[in-house]
Design a protein around this nucleic acid. Structure first.
Lengths: 106, 106
DNA sequence: TATATTTGCAACCGAATAGTTTCATAAATT
DNA sequence: AATTTATGAAACTATTCGGTTGCAAATATA
């Protein structure tokens, strides 16, 4: 099974979990209440997120609080960095389209 | 079939394609030469990337040049934005761990 | 101590995914 | 006109994925 951050954020439920626990650490049960799926399926998502280090656990009695490891998100940001200079320039594909539309109006 | 940018960049071959054509537009054949897979499989990746608008085509005779639509990458950046303030603060998970380690040494 | 609660894990299922092989189409070359 | 080249699409396959159901372990509560 592939276990990298890119694979992890591909699933919309996992992205929602990350946003949810960004505010504060939560237990699997509490997280599952926010979704239309079973607790066990959330548990599986949390395992994957843990394995790729996007979240970490903290045990409190029989409860386990899952918290976001935001610094791991930097990996995505680092990969995006190489494209940032392109989309910030005036010569990316979209700008080119808009430029051509404008030109054709004249 | 899901066709969003997050799904698109989940596959390592597709990420490599995006990096490859970021420098300059390329034909499917030229792209395929850089990988250990068939031309047809690259063609399928290009179709998916086209459908989610991460790349666009430009026909030149019987050749088709695929070019990156970098501005579409912004969608990932926008989603990442909400976490940026967290990982830039001193209170993300990793900093907390380091803080605790330091504290316990005393 | 008996019971309830919180959680993870394994087995299973249907759908999606990435790849291959084969074929059709269109443009360039001979 | 016949052949070669560049490409996309369809059919098929093995693997992965997301979900469910059922169960076991550990902690809290009665």
């Amino acid at each position: 099974m592939r276990r990298d951050v890119f694979q992890a954020i591909a699933d919309p439920t996992r992205r929602a979990i990350l946003v949810l626990i960004a505010a504060r650490a939560m237990t699997p049960n509490a997280i599952a209440e926010h979704f239309d799926t079973s607790r066990q399926s959330i548990s599986k998502h949390l395992r994957l997120l843990t394995e790729c280090e996007l979240v970490s656990q903290e045990q409190a009695g029989r409860e386990i609080y899952y918290q976001l490891n935001a610094s791991k998100m930097k990996e995505i940001d680092v990969w995006l960095e190489q494209f940032r200079k392109i989309w910030e320039s005036r010569f990316n594909a979209l700008d080119q389209v808009l430029y051509n539309m404008k030109k054709n109006k004249k």
